[in-house]
Design a protein around this nucleic acid. Structure first.
Length: 506
RNA sequence: GUCCCCAUCGUCUAGUCAGGUCUAGGACACCGGCCUUUCACGCCGAUAACAGGGGUUCGAAUCCCCUUGGGGGCACCA
């Protein structure tokens, strides 16, 4: 029975590096009908918080990595927060002390620190001098009785430790450099490398799958397992995710948390898919996988040994693909949060009433879909349908450089005035009272006919014709197909827009 | 400094374990073209890599050694 765990520290929201480690654990668990466990390593009280834990657990949920055991749902191997497990460790420490596999060390932290610095400055590796390794029992008892504080050290007897790693094979370490490391601090707080080993054993973890920044911790943990007589789990150290500068991905690289990507309008499916492809490959040319397909295809043994640079550009590309593949109704639903978060909505240009007209709103959303890389982009592309920069208060009046260049074309005045004239003519034909109002629309075919007329009168064609009309009406140099855009805007509003552009922007 | 890990296009990778089919394949980005009398989407194409040096071998991206480069650890942090 496979049991794996992800053990994050609740010190912020879930980082993509951790998310990827979690993903590999999750995939491995599911494909083996195993158990996926979340354990919070919250013993660093200064940095850990319950809020962080909550947001992390939400991130896992959003990523659709459902856990079988964890701090919220519990399980048979709890508790699932390290701070709640502290009582479990004492008896093991006592056992080690009784067996002489560990011993109390009365050296002060300051003294050790001094020695370490001295060695360092001489460019020599520090090793504990084992000053307290062989004190006789009476002395020890007496000093403890006198209230002298002490740390507990694990007695290291072997010269080297071999770690068997599923991805890297055997790795050998000399124990010399960390010999007799501390497992319990003077205040009784057990140390990380000691605690993980016990937790993993107590939770019956079969495969420890974690980032390769933990490789050098592993021999210490192996020593703990052996001292306690615990059977070893299997280890698999997966490569790090790097930033553009090839250094370990961290906050200073910008957006690196799952929450960041969620907010920016990345889809869970795309993030999972992209993350799965960092340091793992199906060894075919296929790139798109659903979670279920990943569960089928993923192979822990074929995880690469080298680190991967996180490339947002490729994630965006993948995200755009997922957006385009969605069912219209799902697309509508999943986009709404981002519509409501947009500036247009905040300024009242898009209202709940607009959104509630599901058919029309979906139609509009669909016309801008090809332009999206993330769902957050909708705000930008929806603008032409609901307002125009400069025309409406609260919207930035600045035109992009590209848009300005288009309006500077020699034919642009003729194009805009020509098109304005045609719109007026059409609306007069359609309205008995001769006043263009907001209920008159033209269809794509009519629009094409009008552009032909304007082409003749202005002499502009192609880009000079269509881009000028686009900028004149929308204020943007990119966006949905013109025929679709025009057929969704009332003639009255287009007339207003053109007048504004002619008056203020030419 | 020391220990450990890693090394194919700018980036993600296939090929490496079982050497020849590799004048090194795919994808992102970039550049060019087509489609659309427009941007985007889509399609087509181009540029672009075996870190260096020694071996072993008829033959090395693939095996061995060295160098170089990069990363991570070296705590009474997790």
């Amino acid at each position: 029975m496979v049991r794996v765990r992800i053990a994050p520290s609740p010190t912020g929201s879930l980082h993509v590096g951790n998310a990827r480690t979690a993903l590999f654990n999750y995939l491995f668990a599911r494909q083996n009908q195993g158990t996926f466990i979340i354990r919070m390593e919250d013993t660093d009280e200064a940095r850990s918080s319950r809020e962080s834990e909550t947001s992390m657990l939400q991130d896992f949920q959003w990523m659709k990595m459902d856990s079988d055991e964890g701090p919220l749902q519990g399980g048979n191997f709890g508790p699932y927060r390290q701070t709640e497990r502290l009582g479990l460790y004492n008896k093991y420490t006592q056992l080690l002390l009784n067996n002489n596999k560990a011993y109390p060390c009365f050296c002060s932290a300051e003294h050790i620190q001094e020695q370490r610095e001295q060695k360092r400055s001489n460019n020599q590796p520090y090793r504990y001098d084992r000053a307290c390794a062989n004190l006789d029992a009476d002395t020890v008892a007496k000093r403890i009785e006198q209230g002298e504080s002490y740390a507990v050290r694990l007695r290291t007897t072997q010269e080297h430790v071999v770690v068997h790693d599923i991805i890297r094979g055997d790795i050998q370490f000399e124990t010399d450099s960390f010999r007799d490391f501390i497992i319990v601090r003077p205040d009784g707080m057990p140390v990380y490398n000691y605690v993980v080993a016990m937790d993993d054993h107590l939770m019956e973890i079969t495969h420890v799958i974690r980032g390769d920044d933990h490789i050098s911790n592993t021999p210490k943990q192996v020593l703990v397992y052996e001292a306690l007589g615990f059977p070893l789990p299997k280890f698999a150290h997966i490569p790090m995710i790097l930033g553009k500068d090839q250094a370990k991905l961290s906050k200073r690289h910008g957006d690196t948390t799952v929450a960041n990507f969620k907010e920016k309008g990345f889809l869970q499916e795309a993030l999972i898919n992209y993350l799965a492809l960092l340091s793992w490959s199906p060894k075919t040319e296929r790139e798109f996988f659903t979670m279920d397909e990943l569960i089928q295809e993923f192979k822990l043994e074929s995880v690469s040994k080298s680190a991967a640079v996180f490339d947002v550009e490729k994630l965006k590309w993948m995200n755009g693909n997922y957006i385009r593949q969605m069912e219209p109704n799902e697309y509508y639903k999943r986009t709404l949060d981002f519509v409501r978060a947009s500036e247009l909505f905040a300024n009242g240009h898009i209202s709940e009433k607009d959104i509630a007209d599901e058919e029309r709103f979906t139609k509009i959303l669909l016309t801008v879909r090809d332009n999206l890389e993330t769902l957050m982009d909708v705000g930008q592309y929806l603008q032409p349908f609901f307002t125009m920069p400069g025309l409406t208060k609260g919207i930035n009046a600045e035109l992009s450089t590209e848009a300005k260049e288009i309006l500077e074309l020699p034919t642009s005045k003729d194009v805009l005035e020509g098109f304005l004239g045609e719109l007026k003519r059409v609306s007069n034909e359609n309205n008995a009272d001769g006043n263009p109002d907001s209920d008159t629309y033209i269809d794509a075919q009519t629009y094409k006919g009008l552009t032909k007329i304007v082409q003749k009168s202005s002499g502009a064609k192609g880009k000079a014709l269509f881009m000028t009309i686009r900028v004149g009406i929308s204020g943007e140099h990119k966006g949905p197909d013109m025929a679709e855009l025009v057929s969704l805007l009332s003639v009255g509003s287009m007339i207003d827009r053109l007048r504004y552009t002619i008056a203020n922007r030419l």
